[in-house]
Structure formats: structure tokens, C-alpha cells
Amino acid sequence: MKNEKRELIDKDGLRVDGRKKDELRPIKIMVGVLSNADGSAYIEQGKNKIIAAVYGPREVHPRHLALPDRAILRCRYHMAPFSVEERKSPAPSRRELELSKVIREALEPTVFLEQYPRTAIDLFIEVLQADGGTRCAGITIGSLALADAGIPMRDLVVACAAGKVDGQIVLDLNDIEDKEGEADVPVAMMPNLNLITLLQMDGLLTPEEFEEALNLSIEGCRRIYALQKKALKEKYISIREEVET
């Protein structure tokens, strides 16, 4: 069995898609892509294509879910039927429900929920094309969509994963590395406050390897954060440059 496995890192230390061990996939982020939503964002990270939309704060329906002292954040992570090679049933699966919860809990600490009691903020994350690391990309643009909607936040949240492939710690796993590799450590953090809001580990790592993976993830987060912030400001800066020159 072990002999049949394909090599994930070649002799030169390059991975299946030609990246180095600590290299991110190419990332493109856009903000404000949907006109009907209060806030929205879109990301392409390697072959991942994900869109996020925020509505609210608005009245809670059904009514009994409303909390008297704070807003509720509702999150739906969903994969389109055509997002993976074999058609995925559009009904929410166990995995999607879990990721919805995980993403919600990664974003909740950043939002000032207590300022708008009895309301709901709805976040929809739709995966159009999946290639590993969608929860991290979902968190990254989820927080951008919240910021675009003008919802008061402590910080942006940015997420990135690291993992173990062919016995080595690598950054930002893609689908093949995620499925055939040995371990996966997704991390979400608030970069300015230096706080981690999500930390998971799937697979087996020694304590030293775990620490290395965590530090690599944080490094990846910092790099994505720069792109994330630039994308958020881009819309307004371009208008300003256009008319003031």
C-alpha cells in the first residue's frame, strides 16, 4: 500500500503543484462583489473559488432565536454541487454543518455583538470550487464581508493551514496534500491583537512538529492578512486616486 502512494514532495523539495514548502498558493481577493448583500467578498486561492455574503444586523426570524442582550451571528458554509469532481448533494452534510459552526466560532470573538441586541447577522459562505483549505479561505473572506457590511469589529480574522506531507511540515495544503498527507493544522487569528480564534489538528504530529506547523500557519496568516487588508481598502483608494488627480 505504501509503495503505491505518489510522491508529494520531489527530490528538489518541490510539492505536487510546484510550490516550495513555505509557499502560499496564488491569492486574489475582491470585496463588494454582490450588490444585493450588505457586504460581500470573493477569494481565489489556488483552485479554490469562494464567495461570502453578509446580511444584517436585521430582525431575527424565527423570533425565538433572538437574544435580549446581544446579536446572534449565523453562519452557513455550503459547497455547490459542482464544486468537487463528483457531484455533491446540495443538502447540507454533516461536514458542512460542522464547518459552519467552526467558522462562526472563529468569527464571533471579533464582532461587537453586544452593541446590537435582538438582531441577527447572517453570513453565507458558498464554495464554488474546492481544492483544500476552504474553511480557512472561508474565514478570511467571511471577516472581510463583515467589514464591508460596516459591522463593528475588533480586528479582521485571517486563517491559514499548515500540515505534514511526506514527513515534512508545509504551508497551505491543497486537496491532494490534505487527503494523502499525514496531518493538517488550520489556524485562524486576529493579527493585530495577536489572538488565535481557531486551532484544529487532524492527523498525527509530535509536539515539536505541531509547534513548527503552528508557527508556519501564523506566518502564512500574516502574509494573507496583508492581501486581505489591501483588498478591503482597494475599492475606496482607487476612487480617490481617480477623481483627485
Binding site: A147, D155, L156, M190, N192, L193, K229, Y236
Partner: peptide
């Protein structure tokens, strides 16, 4: 200057 949430 344009600032984003979390900027010090």
C-alpha cells in the same frame, strides 16, 4: 487615511 478594523 483609510483604515481597516483592527488597525492600531
Amino acid at each position: 487615511d483609510i483604515v481597516a478594523p483592527g488597525d492600531l
